[in-house]
Design a protein around this nucleic acid. Structure first.
Length: 428
DNA sequence: TCTGGGGTCCTAGGACCC
DNA sequence: TCTGGGGTCCTAGGACCC
């Protein structure tokens, strides 16, 4: 498909009246912080932040923390003094909790929506075409999500996905639900760098062209924008104008899947790195099997800390193809370790390793194509079932190690209230 | 060996998002 | 001392073919 078709597939044909499209964006407010507050209500109205893996960066902030000037993505250590002084409550990431809470919110949205797309862990688009009273629909949904899950959400409603993102930001600052159309005067006050799809580089280019607000971009000639921002830019102009170029996306099967992580501390011994890599392979294989996929190859990488100004630097990676489609963790760990042995060099302080599964096929297609799966599938499916029942990590491979010297830092993590029996919330 | 246009497929890298 | 991890989409350019 050429780029014009990609761009225009959703545009109305000449002379044809198209039914006005209408989208809602349901977005959880400060999602990770809100998850923590559900189980610790005394944190309401207090400044709270949540950190990334390894307690490296700040990835979620309550409104109170934002008001203190704490920036999204800022390194934790650079804000430590401010955080202590202002008594900001700090949490390590608790992804089991956030993923489970996200499921609950998405199920609530699904119950009330004709057609939805889960866009990220804390956002969903809904196609509202045909809903008679969108504001009533949104107000009702917002109340129910709050009641059923404890999570506050904001809902923006508009004729295109891009405009619904704008509407959502307005909703966040005011009453929680906001509807607008392309003629809305608000676009005049909406900075262009906050438009969905405009990042740092694009914002700079637009500024140089004198485009400062969403209104300016909306009024620009799409062809001209295309000449320096490509089809992505042209699409943004149309979307801001109220012509929907983006529709709801169905569930996509991923073609590649990654698991990687910085170690909790520098590692020099091959055996420790083997455990870390095995653990990544175990994790990403389970994720791929949940999608009913199998991989045709893998990439393993190993690297030192690029931020370090004193450590000698080394980074290496290798790709291999399998003899047939594979989803068996046992075989995968063997192959991954073999690569690691080749990549490893003595004398470096390693910082991170990871694995990517490549060219993933649906298992259904493997059978159709007459390809032959390798590895023990029954054992894997049994293991997945047990872990689903008993909680993640109930069964694991010895190759991942039991001491976990490489384990990430997460000393400030709250309990995994909803996924681990031993960590249920205690009352009284 | 050089001449030319038109096409496909693949890969690397940039930009962006959450 | 301490700077996340997992993705998507698009484009340009190279290899190859006729």
């Amino acid at each position: 498909m050429g780029c014009c078709e990609v761009l225009l597939k959703a545009l109305p044909r000449n002379g044809q009246e198209k039914v006005m499209s209408l989208f809602a964006l349901v977005d959880c407010n400060n999602f990770y912080v809100s998850c923590e507050r559900v189980f610790a209500p005394h944190l309401n109205h207090k400044p709270v932040v949540v950190l990334s893996n390894n307690d490296g960066c700040i990835v979620a902030r309550s409104n109170e923390a934002k008001a203190l000037g704490i920036q999204m993505g800022a390194p934790f250590y650079k804000n430590k003094r401010l955080i202590e002084k202002q008594r900001v409550r700090v949490f390590s990431s608790n992804y089991q909790l956030y993923a489970d809470m996200s499921d609950r919110v998405m199920q609530a949205v699904a119950r009330h929506s004709p057609n939805m797309e889960v866009y990220s862990i804390d956002e969903a688009f809904v196609d509202l075409t045909g809903i008679s009273d969108p504001m009533l629909w949104a107000t009702d949904l917002r109340r129910k999500i709050r009641q059923w899950t404890g999570i506050p959400v904001s809902i923006g409603i508009a004729p295109t996905k891009t405009l619904s993102k704008v509407a959502n930001q307005i909703a966040k600052k005011h009453t929680g639900v906001f509807q607008m159309d392309a003629q809305s005067g608000i676009l005049q006050y909406f900075p262009v760098e906050e438009v969905w799809g405009v990042g740092r580089k694009t914002a700079q280019k637009l500024q140089m062209m004198g485009i400062r607000t969403a209104k300016d971009l909306q009024a620009a000639n799409p062809r001209w924008i295309r000449s320096f921002l490509g089809v992505v830019g042209e699409r943004m102009v149309h979307e801001l104008y109220g012509r929907a170029c983006l529709s709801l996306e169905g569930e996509v099967n991923k073609k590649n899947m990654v698991s990687s992580r910085a170690f909790g501390k520098k590692l020099t011994m091959l055996e420790d790195i083997e455990c870390a890599l095995s653990s990544h392979i175990q994790k990403v294989c389970a994720k791929m099997r949940a999608q009913k996929g199998c991989a045709q190859g893998m990439m393993v990488f190993l690297q030192t800390n690029a931020f370090s100004k004193t450590d000698p630097q080394y980074r290496a990676s290798r790709v291999i193809g399998f003899e047939g489609p594979l989803s068996d963790t046992v075989t995968m760990i063997k192959r991954g370790k073999a690569i690691l042995h080749d990549l490893y060099r003595l004398g470096y302080a390693y910082h991170k390793c990871g694995v990517m599964l490549l060219d993933i096929l649906p298992k259904s297609q493997v059978q159709l194509d007459g390809l032959v799966m390798v590895g023990n599938d029954q054992l894997m499916s049994l293991m997945d079932q047990v872990n689903h029942h008993m909680g993640p990590g109930a069964l694991f491979f010895a190759a991942t190690g039991v001491q976990a010297r490489w384990q990430t830092r997460c000393t400030l993590r709250s309990d995994r209230y909803t996924t681990q029996w031993a960590e249920l919330l205690q009352v009284g």
